[in-house]
Design a protein around this nucleic acid. Sequence first.
RNA 1: GCUCCCAUCGUCUAGAGGCCUAGGACGCGGCCCUCUCAAGGCUGAAACACGGGUUCGAAUCCCGUUGGGAGCGCCA
Length: 467
Amino acid sequence: MTVVTRFAPSPTGYLHIGGARTALFNYLYSKHTGGTFLLRIEDTDRARSTQPAIDAIIDGLKWLGLNWDGDIVFQFARAPRHREAAEQLLAEGKAYRCYCTPEELTAMREEQKKNGWPMRYDGRWRERKPSESEAKLPFVVRLKAPIAGETVLDDLVQGQVTVANSQLDDMVLLRSDGTPTYMLSVVVDDHDMKITHVIRGDDHLTNAFRQHQLFRALGYTPPVYGHIPLIHGPDGAKLSKRHGALGVEAYRDLGLLPEAMRNYLLRLGWGHGDDEIISDAQAIEWFDVKDVGRGAARFDMVKLTNLNGHYIREADDARLVGLIKPLIEKRANLPVDDAAHARLTRGMAGLKQRAKTLIELADSAAFYARGRPLALDDKAKAILAEGGKAVLAQIATALDAQSSWTAADLEAWAKAFGEAKGLKLGQVAQPIRVALSGSTVSPPIFDVMDVLGRAETLARIRDAVGA
RNA sequence: GCUCCCAUCGUCUAGAGGCCUAGGACGCGGCCCUCUCAAGGCUGAAACACGGGUUCGAAUCCCGUUGGGAGCGCCA
C-alpha cells in the first residue's frame, strides 16, 4: 500500500507554527515511505475563508520547502459530491433530519451545563417524524451514530484510544442551507483522495472518533490516524498570538532560514538519539510518526535562533548576500551597488560566523556598503577620543608604506608596528576596526582590510583621523 | 461539568526493568582560545511531580493523587 498523506488547513488565517509542523510531519512521513503528500484547502466556511489566507498558506509551505504532490484540492468545490454522500446516508436511513432551531439547541446546552450533564445533542429528532407544519421548517441532516458500544482508534501517536459511543452525539452533516459541514467533507475527501494516513493536531482526536463512525456509515475504510500534540507557548498554555503563534512569514521576516525552521520544528516532539542538527535527507530517513512524543512541547524562540545561527554559518555565501541585500537597502537605507555586492561576497565568510539571524547579518554587514565618511557609534567615538586617533594617525602613515595587502601580511605588519610602538595588538587593531567599520565589533579586522582594499582602507582611516 | 490525552534538568529531548552515579542540546556560570564580537574547546550548576504497589531490581509496568492540555458548534 502506498502511503498518501495530506495537509488540510482551513484558510482562515496565516500558516501558523503548529500548522507548519503538521505539514512538515506529513511531508516527511510521505517521503520516508516513498508515498505522496497532498494539499487540501478546507474552505467550506465561506464566511471566514479568504484568498489572502490561501496565499499565505501556499507561500508559507513554499518558503519552508514543503512541496506537495499534484494539484491543490479546494474542498468547497467538491460540495456537490459531499451533499451526495449525505443524501445517500439519508436514503439508507443512516442519517436523519433534525428540525431543531439554533435557539433550541442553545437552550438544551445551557440546561445540560446547569445540571452538570455532558453537553451533547440529545437525539430528539432521531426517531421522530415531523408534523406537517414542522416539515416546512428548515432542517439539518445528522448522522444516526451508534448509541451502544464503543469506538476504538489505534492512533499512531496516542496508541489505542477508546471512547464510549454514548459520548459521541449525532453530528451535523448538512447545514440548514444545505451546505456540507467540515466533518462530512473531510471524510468524503479523505476517502476520494485515497488518504492512507491522517497526521494532524491533537485537537482533532475527538473528531477522529466521529469521522471514524462516518467512514463506517458510508462504507469506506478509515485511514490510519496520528494525532500529534499541540505546540504550547512558554507558559504551557496553547500557543496563541500573544506567544508567537505568528505566521511563518513572520519568522522569515525575523531573519530565519527555512532549513533552521524545519530542523527546529522536527525536534519539537520528536528526537533521534542525541542528534540535534539533522539534514533534510536524515530527517526523511529517520522520521516516523510513531516516534512522535505524546506530550505537548513548548515553543522556544531562543533555541530556534541558535539553530538559525548554525544554518547561517553553513549557508552558501552567495545565497546569504542575496538574502541580506534587500535588508541592507531597507534597514540602512543604502543602495547596494556592484562594488558593495562584491565586498559583501568577499566578506561573507567572516560575517556569517557571527550572526544568528539575517537581520543581524545585514546590520553587521552594512559597513561594507556604506560610503565615506563613515558614521561612528558612541563606543567607536570613545575609542578615538581615548587616544585611538593618535594611534590611527601613526598607523595611516606607516600603512602607506605597506605594499602587500593580504590579511596575513597585514596582521604581521600590525604586530611589528605594535612592537615598535610598544602597543599591544588590540591597541592597534581596535582603532582600525573603529575607522573601518564605524563600530567596536566586526569580523577579524585584517580580513576586513583585505576585503575593503588598500585605497578604501586608507581613506577610511584618514577620515577617522581627521574627524 | 463531562470525555479523552499527557507528565525526565528552566526549555527541547535520550531512556522501551538491571548498561542510569539519568545522556545530549538550548539557555545560564567558569576556564581556554583571541585584534573586537562571535564561533569553537573544556568545565560547573540543573530533572525522573507525589504516594502506593508488582519485582531480586523501576525513570521505565500497574493503581491512585496532584498538576497540565485538548475536545464537548448548523467553525474547521
